[in-house]
Design a binder for these strands. Structure first.
Lengths: 216, 216, 216, 216
DNA sequence: CATGAATGAGCGTTCATTCAT
DNA sequence: CATGAATGAACGCTCATTCAT
């Protein structure tokens, strides 16, 4: 769960709770994830989570003060896993290579649980943003930013571009999930094409060259 | 609502109810949209809609048999407006030009009500698909497909590419909305860059050339 | 509707309403009866009655101040028809013969609309008893009472016996209706047997002879 | 439900739920019965039941999935009590004697809660018939049938006669309840007279002898 | 700590009734 | 008078949360 690698300088991110009850917490989050992705948000009730987790509703409230806290913890966990995988993938690569590795991990991650990602994204949007979640989202952004800055081609507004790259990846990957796509390699190639193409466009020329020449 | 152009002659688009009470229906849908985008789905109750619309809950149920019907009608309305604007924009343009026009409309549309689009997309996903909604979604896909087929560069798998283009647009536009972006022109240029770049990548070379050359 | 025969000395019982609107009232009551017997009390709403009657809900309230008033009017009408038929049947007969005729009419009446009678009985029970309804119920009781008093065998407590005879008839006839019986003649014979037997028992011996001899 | 021995030593009769919360279930059913018989079906709402039972509406729904389930449970309970009493009364008696005992129990039962029986009968009619309820109704019919078959006088169509006897008892007993009668002995004697008389008529002579001789 | 019975605010929905047209 | 859109109290029911055991 916590993998303090050499390069990522020890972000604890996880309260160890109480080692004994970790199993309960895990069971609860697993149950929440399973309900969300297989029966949808309308079936996602605290009682259902407790039942599927095999614990009493009271125990759920021992570890999570509210239902939203469960959702947040689940988002944290899923984001955390993704972030770790991405970090590991990017660790020894640089520039475009790192970016492609990152895309590979994102695609892989999404196709494993296509519905869950979408739903958690949505839940995340309506939840009052909190510290750790912000940090996690920042983590991904920072990684992409680093990749962009390592590119040979200078990117003009790297922050904006990083956000766009994230949006492109998320959009394509979610769309594929919704359409039921399963071909991981194919999807990865297309996402790579989109990101590569986008970066090529915004670096080769001044932004909006294409757009302004539209009328001619 | 009815756009009797040369080519698409008479699309009445099915007024949901009697003409006389159109004002009430409009008020209800406006209220629903406003609640969804400003307070989120958890505040989206039929009583809240009725109160904000300035009508009684009974009146709401004279025009909509269920709450989901309100949501569906709202989706229909928003999708309809977008589709009309897009159709009009694409009408006299072709190929890349048409595609850029389409992107412009999509960006414009989204930035006007950034949250609403996202939420309705999500609601649409969990609603039992219905005739008209399916048709509307198809409408956008078909328009993009046409644009792709009119490009000078041949696109290998046009259906897939159309879906990807939609996903890229939606992803970037939603992302921008969530980050609170307001610069329509800037966003439009970047989306254009992404779509153009993507299409350039997948047509110039066989798909995955880039990817396979990654290791070199 | 009002059939002032020679012998029954002109009981008007029916406000003529306004001759013109009689058709509307009739349509409303017909609709109410039809809904009650074919779809049950849960489908018996004022709007449904208005729709089936082919009038607006506003018109319904022009003629009936409340929903219960419709029900009461329907009970009145049905009771009135039964009472008239019974009166006519009993008119020229006496004693046992009259009683049997009365049973025949009751059986016939019930088997024509088996569900309606039961439901109206029930509605009647929960409605605040009103003048005319009390009169109608009295009408039947009085007729039976007269029959009993014309019997050769003296009945000890004629009022009580009349009530019992009514209960027996109603009980058997409702039961038959519920079981879906359609053989009018067979049912009539059995009801006659029950009433005849009951009267024989209570007149031949002192009441409870049977009962008290039970222990011996 | 399972009537294993003559003496019926331990009749568990299927507590509908956990033993611990039996008190709550009982309170709910008591409240439901009280509301139905004192204020009528129109006052019989789940909230009213919960309030009178002294529990929250949520608790009601922990024991009963729907309102109809409450009604059914109440019918089951009342029917069950009656059936037990009747079984016990009939246990060591035969033929006419058993029949009279049965009538005594029925009369006693009804006069204790005159309105409730009527209302539950009605509710039962509009509820989707279920296993146990059908069994209970059958129970009474079978008992009567047995009594009839033990009579010295042969009854021609015992099934029909049993149904009629049930109808007569129910009709007289309901009628008495509605009229507010309280004299249990008197009523019992009259019901006995009716049933005895009816059976005498249909066995002594071919059915309808009386009826056919009517014209003479 | 674990349990699950209990709570009650609030949901979606119905329908008897009113009243402006 | 006829109409039917509008009203809103009240219904059946859910579920996040609490707390006595």
């Amino acid at each position: 769960m916590d993998k303090p690698s050499r390069h990522t300088p020890s972000r604890p991110r996880k309260k160890p709770v109480q080692a004994r009850s970790l199993a309960t917490v895990t069971a609860i989050l697993d149950a929440a994830a399973h309900i969300l992705e297989s029966a949808g948000p309308s079936a996602y009730s605290t009682n259902a989570v407790a039942a599927l987790a095999g614990v009493s509703i009271g125990s759920v409230y021992q570890y999570f003060p509210t239902k939203d806290a469960i959702t947040r913890a689940l988002i944290d966990r899923e984001t955390g896993v993704l972030l770790e995988d991405v970090s590991r993938a990017v660790e020894n690569a640089h520039g475009a290579e790192a970016l492609m590795a990152l895309i590979g991990v994102a695609v892989h991650h999404q196709l494993r649980r296509p519905a869950l990602g979408r739903i958690l994204d949505y839940e995340e949007a309506r939840l009052p943003m909190q510290e750790d979640m912000a940090q996690a989202a920042e983590g991904a952004r920072v990684l992409i930013l680093r990749c962009l800055q390592e590119l040979k081609e200078r990117v003009e507004k790297p922050a904006e571009a990083a956000a766009d790259v994230m949006s492109i990846i998320k959009g394509m990957v979610d769309g594929a999930g919704q359409r039921g796509e399963v071909d991981e390699t194919g999807l990865r190639c297309r996402v790579e094409a989109a990101v590569t193409g986008y970066l090529g466009q915004i670096s080769a020329k001044g932004l909006c060259r294409l757009a302004s020449s539209r009328g001619s």
